[in-house]
Design a protein around this nucleic acid. Structure first.
Lengths: 339, 339
DNA sequence: TTGTAGGCGTTATCAT
DNA sequence: ATGATAACGCCTACAA
């Protein structure tokens, strides 16, 4: 129980050799006397010597730590994503510094600032909903620390990012529903200012147009994610002369509220009205009325890809290779899951 | 876009003063010429100087990083817990290194090893289900790095830990059900080798005994968490001459499977049979039949407390105070939530 | 008020 | 085959 970790210096002192000898002995590499080599290894083991990575990293100006900032870890999407990030990081002997923004830009700035202070080798971030300035992030690039965005990516050009094309995915959902002879397809969208909402709306419109249907904006409503708000939308839909035959909800939470409302109003869920959603809660499978189709966004894979992209960038940097591109972009295709 | 971060040395060179002057100027403290002080600050800002915490921490032999190892972040319980840990860490200017064991002891060892290499200032861990040896953890204490266990704590004595007394909680659940005039109370427990199962069983037995009921081991069955296994248990219960009046499930996943089975077999859930569970999925509120009561384990609070305990230990260490105790133990009371 | 020097643990570059 | 030394960035006695 000797608290202090021994150093090569200590070993050198005891063995009456120089520190450089010990250092070399530990690395086996260079030609060194077999006798001393063994003695060093022996004592090292006996003392429980472990190289001080802090000192090494300090010298190398690296930390082998990647900062990861997410809006909200309790959303299954993000906990799956960080698992993918961690998985890829482990394979590369990297470690993850964890932080949440709670969808608040000020918190995001604070967290990101801490990570800068900790001198992470790179930052992987999924932006908070109201992040509209990027100074705290471009600051990283100024210090030559790579940033990879994923899922919630910025509108900026020239950034590294991994994301799912929700526009295309939504369009494909519409297509799928159309193929089931459903014509009046409604969308309960999120607040217009969210990028996620814009993507869904664009995809919806494209999908409808592609089937040569007329886009009926009566069938597109917004919820602020509160139950009351979603209920109000549902009320409007159900009271229509021709209620929608299918309803696409912004996410599974909205979906569940919508289904609950529908059930309470005697709608035969997934019979009279088909429900679709975006997969973020594995738990919906346990609910009475899971969405008939949902759009899988592969959070684990997105995380993995983001980390792999980061590794690529870092490796180019440390090996002084010219980068293949000024920035990297990868799209992970969203796919429709039928339940 | 000058990649390199300036150092005090650089500032000193430009200002033709010594590094110590710059260092002092940056810290304001010591008596220093107002003129030079301002000049230093000015140039520092201009150059975008930021102290290299890596260098400072290296010197101080601290990292201000706490390693956190969880079985599985996608369980809501653990993502809530890490949020609590992060919250308390932020308040203390500490940062979190993240790792999962996936309930596998070998993975746990690897992850824990990486954290040791990273020279974290402390480790907070919730053990994997099959961790029965603790060498990889006691190694920390040998290096005088504090370890705080939470929720899934080891059987060892003399460890710092934060946990919820599930035995008592279970006993109280039985008590509550008894007060509702329910006498035949069943328990779908987890595998016997899990500590969590033992706690629940002990609590169950205590609770039953306390009401002066006879413990009927017919009413206690085990599931391996698969749907089939849970169904088999339910089958047995429902085919009894006197089926249970209440069923306590090991967790919400088991609960949902059990309820699904019951529904399919025409049982009026929460009417004919009352269902109780352990709160780990906020989503159950959305399901058709949430458990009537559930035992809340306050994961966020447990995480917070674990981190606060860690801070206390570390602060005692760095200030060379004699510790108040050789180790700390804190119990977070579980409480019954009625739905 | 300011400068000098040593040290934290390691590696790399010279010497010997 | 081994040793001495400088360097990474910062801090802090101690000196001037």
């Amino acid at each position: 129980m000797e608290g202090k970790n021994p150093t090569i210096k200590e070993i050198a002192r005891r063995l009456k050799v120089s520190v450089s000898t010990v250092s070399r002995a530990m690395h086996n590499n260079t030609r060194i006397g077999l006798g001393t080599r063994n003695k060093v290894h022996e004592l090292a083991k006996e003392l429980g010597y472990e190289p001080n990575t802090q000192a090494i990293f300090f010298k190398q100006k690296r930390t082998f730590i990647i900062g990861v900032v997410l809006p909200y870890i309790r959303e299954d999407f993000f906990s799956a994503a960080i698992s993918g990030i961690e998985s890829a990081a482990m394979l590369n002997n990297y470690t993850i510094l964890f932080g949440q923004s709670y969808d608040d830009i000020e918190t995001e700035k604070r967290v990101v600032g801490v990570m800068r202070k900790q001198r992470v080798d790179g930052l992987i971030i999924s932006l908070s909903k109201n992040t509209n300035k990027y100074d705290h992030l471009t600051a990283f690039e100024k210090n030559d620390i790579p940033v990879v965005y994923f899922d919630r990516v910025p509108v900026l050009q020239n950034v590294n990012k991994v994301y799912c094309d929700m526009e295309r995915g939504t369009s494909e959902m519409v297509e799928w529903l159309f193929a089931k002879d459903l014509r009046r397809i409604a969308l309960i969208n999120g607040p217009a200012k969210l990028a996620a909402s814009r993507d869904r709306l664009q995809g919806y419109i494209k999908g409808i147009a592609k089937q040569k249907l007329k886009v009926d904006m009566q069938l597109v409503e917004e919820t602020d994610f509160s139950k009351e708000s979603t209920n109000a939308v549902m009320k409007k839909f159900l009271e229509m002369k021709h209620p929608p035959q299918a309803i696409i909800s912004f996410n599974d939470y909205v979906h569940m509220d919508a289904v609950q409302y529908a059930t309470q109003h005697k709608v035969k869920v997934n019979k009279e009205i088909i429900f679709a959603s975006y997969a973020n809660l594995p738990i919906t499978a346990y609910t009475k009325h899971p969405p008939i189709i949902s759009l899988e966004q592969y959070p684990f894979k997105q995380g993995e890809r983001a980390m792999e992209m980061m590794m690529k960038i870092i490796n180019e940097k440390v090996s002084h290779q010219p980068p293949q591109a000024s920035h990297y972009v990868e799209e992970v295709p969203a796919t429709i899951m039928v339940h």
